[in-house]
Design a protein around this nucleic acid. Structure first.
Length: 546
RNA sequence: GCCUCGGUAGCUCAGCUGGUAGAGCAGCUGACUCUUAAUCAGCGGGUCCAAGGUUCGAAUCCUUGCCGAGGCACCA
């Protein structure tokens, strides 16, 4: 990849005369000013000055080559070399002319100081990097006077480089016996406690950088996330899907029914929406002739925030020309099991694992549950969902809002969500098949039963992980459904809902029959990493401004 | 938007029917060549989230607001 010229990278943004930019910057600078810093910070600043002055140490470091992760350094500990060195030391005690024997591996590690114990002429501290912790032992006899002075004055949170042989203490702790140490970065902030670490959920999300070094499982979860996304990509590529990127800023926010975020392009004087879904663009690619595509990217929905919703979230959508919703079902079931297998370390092609999620044990073994929407409705209510009178009565009985006037199928779905979804076993991944057409405007109706759409939703642990459709490719029906939908929009919805005529035009050009699916990647990661809050799988979740 | 719970030292928390603000760890000074949440001696450290009210007196009771957690609602 060619590097961009530095001039471009560092050039100030050009067209930023918009007032909201300045506004945002002012808001961001609500941190306490330096003069508000307490005694703990003052003590660290005093050390900083001492390092720079009397000790001649640069507290913000320099390039260091040939570093290895703490875990790798620890793994290079060799019992025989350690024993030989200890024996040699004993021999020299008896006879100082005995030769020095030291075949222990030399290592160089860097990390944050997590523990610090000063025993006078011997200093122990632990360094932490993302691979783990490793103790560094500094003996006054082994290092320069300057290095020893530095070792004694280190603070919890400082970033330090240590060089030396990997060995063991008398008490059996594997450690680096420092031959030299170097301060990489002085930390000025008071750290969280060394025992409890950082537990306050608010600070964990707001200051993720502290959470990450204080709670190693945080970094672990995000390493897992990265691995899962990579597995998903490789799975899709192996099946011949092409990864594409479609607009995140759209003049019409289509493809779903959520409330969008609004923004503006100044030069074109144009209102834009952050996308709520990529669907309508990916389908245009089908029209253009691409057979199998997928996109993994952010969607933005201007809705509430809770344990399974963040306003910006990562979704995958995939489309396969000449497929249908059952093509997608096979693909998604294989994909979810594939990822679950990788997480559990079980054999590929086997039945699949059982993974914990909170108090649940999710059973990813073959096959996932399949249940028809109308059968689930029948089980929940005891009558057919097409029975308008009974549905109307049940709506009133269950106090559905506007039960008397609401469209029959919308009422059916209200009832379904209230009572039927609860019948799904949260421990069994379940495909609910064949939703009513009336609530599926982008889905092709079943040819024999047009009130039913060829659509499924996958539920795991009570969460909706994603839907799939046999895509509607009849331009006339699509236009009719869009028009009907717009007619039902209230005043607020009308401000952001517009008919995407170009999309309808693309269907007139002709989209091959196709299957399509969507999947919430954050929710998939939650399930795979046993994280019950979406905030634990998003590095910087949206928080209210302080 | 609604309901419940919470916000006290850098961190984790205690603080009873209203009566001078506490602990452990962290910090500072000193001792210690094998520590493992090191130990020992000594010393500092608070806008009790904010504003208002009740009271002789409020961390504590009341009201409102801010921030968070959980739940509900919203989310085809």
């Amino acid at each position: 990849m060619e590097a961009r010229p530095a001039r471009l990278r560092w050039a100030p943004p050009v067209n930023l005369q918009a007032t909201n930019v300045t506004q945002q910057n002012t808001d961001a600078v609500s941190q306490p000013a330096p003069e508000d810093e307490g005694a703990l910070v003052a003590a660290r600043r005093a050390k900083l000055e001492q390092l720079r002055g009397a000790m001649g140490v640069e507290p913000y470091g320099r390039r260091v080559d040939a570093l290895e992760p703490c875990a790798a350094a620890r793994a290079r500990f060799d019992e025989a070399a350690h024993a030989a060195f200890e024996a040699g030391q004993a021999a020299r005690k008896a006879d100082p002319s005995a030769p020095v024997t030291d075949s222990r591996a030399r290592v160089r590690i860097a990390g944050r100081v997590m523990q610090h114990r000063d025993l006078g002429k011997l200093v122990f501290f632990w360094l932490r990097d993302t691979s783990g912790d490793l103790q560094v032992t500094v003996s006054k006899a082994n290092v320069s006077e300057a290095d020893f002075a530095l070792a004694k004055m280190l603070d919890y949170g400082d970033i330090v480089v240590a060089d030396g042989p990997i060995g063991r203490t008398n008490k059996g702790e594997t450690c680096v016996w420092a031959s030299s140490i170097e301060l990489a970065t002085k930390s000025l902030a008071p750290p969280p406690g060394k025992w409890h670490g950082l537990e306050d959920a608010e600070i964990r999300y707001r200051k993720r950088y502290v959470d990450m070094y204080s709670n190693p499982e945080t970094v672990r979860a995000f390493e897992q996330r990265s691995r899962i996304v990579s597995l998903v990509r490789r799975f899709m590529e192996a099946r011949g899907y092409l990864e594409v990127e479609t607009p995140m800023m759209q003049p019409i926010a289509g493809g779903a029914a959520a409330r969008p975020f609004v923004t503006k392009h100044n030069a074109l004087d144009m209102e834009l929406f952050l996308r709520i879904a990529p669907e309508l663009y990916l389908k245009r690619l089908m029209v253009g002739g691409m057979r199998k595509v997928f996109e993994i990217n952010r969607n933005f929905r201007n809705e509430g925030v809770d344990r399974s919703h963040n306003p910006e979230f990562t979704a995958m959508e995939a489309y396969e020309a000449f497929g249908d919703y059952m093509t997608m079902l096979e693909m998604v079931e294989s994909l979810v099991r594939h990822v679950a297998c990788a997480m559990a370390g079980c054999a590929e092609g086997g039945d699949g694992p059982v993974l914990p999620f909170g108090d649940l044990r999710i059973d990813y073994r073959k096959p996932f549950e399949r249940v028809r929407y109308e059968d689930l409705f029948m089980r929940a209510f005891g009558f057919d969902m097409r029975d308008e009178a009974k549905v109307r009565a049940a709506g009133k009985e269950h106090h559905v809002e506007k039960a008397a006037t609401l469209d029959h199928w919308l009422l059916v779905n209200e009832l379904f969500e209230e009572k039927a979804e609860a019948l799904i076993d949260p421990q069994r991944p379940t495909f609910v098949l064949d939703y009513p057409s009336a609530i599926s405007p982008l889905t092709r109706p079943n040819r024999a039963h047009p009130e039913i759409a060829e659509r499924w939703d996958l539920f795991i642990a009570g969460m909706e992980v994603g839907p799939a459709y046999t895509e509607l490719n009849d331009p006339d029906i699509q236009l009719a459904k869009f028009t009907e939908q717009l007619a039902g929009a209230d005043d607020e919805e009308s401000t952001f809902r517009t008919l995407d005529h170009d999309f309808v035009e693309s269907l007139r050009v002709g989209m091959p029959p196709a299957g399509g699916m969507g999947m919430g990647i954050d929710r998939l990661v939650m399930l795979m990493t046993n994280s019950e809050s979406i905030r634990d799988v998003i590095l910087f979740p949206l928080m209210r401004r302080q």
